[in-house]
Simulated assay, not measured.
Amino acid sequence: MTKLPPLNALRAFEAAARHLSFKRAADELHVTQAAISHQVKQLEEHLHLPLFERSARGVKLTEAGRALLPVLSDAFDSILQTVEGLGATRSGGALLVSLRPYFAAKWLAPRLARFWQAWPQIALRLHHTTRPASFRGEEIDVAIWWGDGGWPGVETERLLPCDLTAVCSPDLLQGPYPLNSPWALRWHTLLHEETDENWRRWLSAAGVPDLKPRKQLFIDDTNVRLEAAIKGQGIALTGRELVADELAARRLVAPFDTSLGGFAYYLVYPKGALSRPAVRAFRDWIFAEAQADRGETSAAVPATDSARPKPAPPTSTKAKRWPA
């Protein structure tokens, strides 16, 4: 009989492959990055196959790595669900939801009173993070992620569209360098999150791919980034849905028509999670709230493979997955 690889090596590979990052895998498993690298190398030696292609820009999966990842993810998810089912303390009404601070403050928080009124027996806890949550090791039950919906090993349902639009203070529409065309951005400051990827793709979509702005600031907290935009300190990218109040009050304006489409906020949870009453209740409630925003009155869409909303195809090149 073929001997199975060490469990720690399998766990290290699965986490690194899911994040495409040894560092994030190390953070998730609470070990060092060197330990992850060692475990992955041990697994590759056991299989006599490379699982990652390594370069100065990062890592990507080989064909063997792509074949192994979903098998391991499904296996670990199955183990996790079984263990959770055995734990009486988590089979009841406690629910931990992972999401970005800005989305929590702007969209979810104003609606929470209605959830507590409808489901007083569910102890809802919000876990704020700027990183995609792990459903292993953090006891996360359900998450709200932004992106194109293409995440392996989890169930995803499209909750709210959120295309990226440039916004700024109305003061920047005047002055010596008014924002009357995308070219005018070369005289201004672009406000980035962790990288400049979103802005580079937006500029390309706007027809000015070679534009060099006067200055660039990197602010990973969306609350701070948009406050800087409101104060006239630069131009930010965000979803119109999240700044509707600011646009209506003209604390912010959207000077250009260009946006990066095909992205949305998704409800994300492990396979089989809807068998838990608390997860099902939160899922149905949040979709009812999203439908109410769109003026729809029908009941929440049943969470089945045939009825689940499918991710819309991007209308432009993919952007970074975590802007808000």
Rank of each mutant, 00 (worst) to 15 (best):
L7D: 12
A12G: 12
F13V: 06
F13H: 00
F13W: 07
E14L: 13
A17G: 15
A17I: 01
R18D: 05
F22K: 05
K23P: 04
K23Y: 12
R24F: 09
R24Y: 04
D27Q: 15
E28I: 00
L29H: 04
A34Q: 12
A34F: 05
H46E: 02
P50N: 14
P50M: 11
L51F: 06
E53N: 14
A56F: 12
R57H: 14
G58A: 07
K60W: 12
L61A: 10
E63W: 03
A64F: 09
A64Q: 11
R66D: 02
L69V: 07
P70H: 13
L72N: 04
F76M: 01
D77F: 07
L80E: 13
G85W: 06
A88M: 14
A88H: 14
A88G: 14
G93W: 08
G93N: 12
P101N: 04
A104G: 05
P110H: 09
L112E: 15
A113E: 08
W116F: 10
Q117K: 15
A118F: 11
P120R: 10
Q121N: 13
I122C: 09
A123Q: 15
L124E: 00
H127P: 05
H128Q: 14
A133D: 01
S134P: 00
E138T: 06
D141R: 01
A143P: 07
I144D: 06
W145M: 03
W145G: 06
D148K: 06
E155M: 10
E157N: 00
R158Y: 04
L159I: 01
L160D: 02
C162T: 04
T165P: 00
V167A: 02
P170T: 04
Q174K: 14
Q174T: 11
Q174E: 07
G175Q: 13
Y177M: 11
Y177C: 13
N180W: 09
W183T: 11
A184H: 14
R186D: 08
H188L: 03
T189D: 03
T189M: 06
L191V: 09
H192W: 08
E193K: 13
D196K: 15
W199I: 09
W199E: 02
W202I: 09
G207W: 11
G207L: 10
P213T: 02
D220A: 15
T222F: 07
N223R: 13
L226I: 15
E227Q: 15
E227V: 05
K231D: 07
Q233V: 05
G234N: 08
A236M: 04
L237T: 03
T238G: 09
G239E: 08
A244Q: 14
E246D: 15
A249C: 07
A249H: 14
R250G: 05
R250I: 02
V253K: 05
V253E: 08
D257A: 15
G261L: 08
G261Y: 07
G261H: 03
G262A: 09
Y265M: 03
Y269A: 00
P270G: 01
P270K: 00
S275L: 13
R276E: 00
P277N: 10
A281V: 02
F282H: 03
W285C: 01
I286H: 02
F287D: 01
E289H: 00
E289D: 00
R294C: 08
S298F: 08
A300M: 08
V301K: 04
V301Y: 10
D305C: 02
P309N: 06
K310H: 12
P314W: 03
T315R: 14
T315Y: 03
S316L: 03
A319D: 00
K320A: 04
